[in-house]
């Protein structure tokens, strides 16, 4: 069983720049912030290393940090410019019984993160859902398309904080 600090030190000596920092100040779980483009090499190391053996991805979730500037565009709708979108990864080891939380952040205008489907095949649909709800593009994903919304939904990404509902969709009135 390893704690988050020990794993952070192991990753820092192997990957240096890509592993950014370890945050332990807020409750409850400590998490490690990593770089979004070299993420898959870090995850492959986490899965294959003998001391760590993280063989199961529990959860992958996109988050809208909403830390940009709010401004009103021409029609008067409020949008958020700048800021970041983040993804949290929760992984665990069924053999050594320890858990870890990772976080990456990308810019809101051009959100790109490399996929981890080569490491854990279960990440496939989780990443499709993050793309569907937030618009985060996963590089090298085998099949990135919408999964919960209709395939021809062109009114944006629903879980972003500045999402607005359309009036009609294929002849049906959407608001109450």
């Amino acid at each position: 069983m390893k704690t988050a600090e020990e794993i952070y030190n192991l990753l820092k000596e192997k990957f240096g720049e890509s592993v950014i920092e370890l945050k332990t100040d807020k409750p409850v779980d400590p998490f490690i912030i990593v770089d979004p483009i070299t993420l898959d090499k870090i995850c492959l190391f986490l899965r294959n290393e003998n001391d760590l053996q993280f063989d199961s991805l529990m959860n992958l979730s996109g988050v809208d940090d909403a830390n940009g500037t709010k401004e009103k565009d021409d029609i008067g709708l409020e949008t958020i410019k700048g800021g970041t979108l983040s993804i949290f990864y929760h992984i665990e080891s069924t053999k050594l019984k320890h858990k870890l939380t990772l976080k990456t952040s990308t810019s809101r205008e051009k959100p790109e993160v490399v996929t981890v489907t080569d490491v854990w095949k279960g990440a496939d649909w989780h990443e499709r859902e993050a793309y569907d709800m937030y618009g985060i593009i996963f590089l090298n994903h085998p099949d990135l398309r919408r999964i919960l919304m209709p395939y021809d939904w062109e009114f944006g990404y629903p879980l972003r904080k500045d999402y607005k509902n359309p009036e009609f969709y294929q002849g049906m009135k959407v608001p109450y």
Binding site: L148, M149, P158, Y163, N165, M172, K173, V174, P175, Y176
Partner: peptide, 15 residues
């Protein structure tokens, strides 16, 4: 789900 449901049809009598 009437208030914030962006994907819910508010009553089947709309179709």
């Amino acid at each position: 789900y009437w208030e914030h449901g962006y994907h819910v049809l508010k009553g089947v009598d709309r179709v």
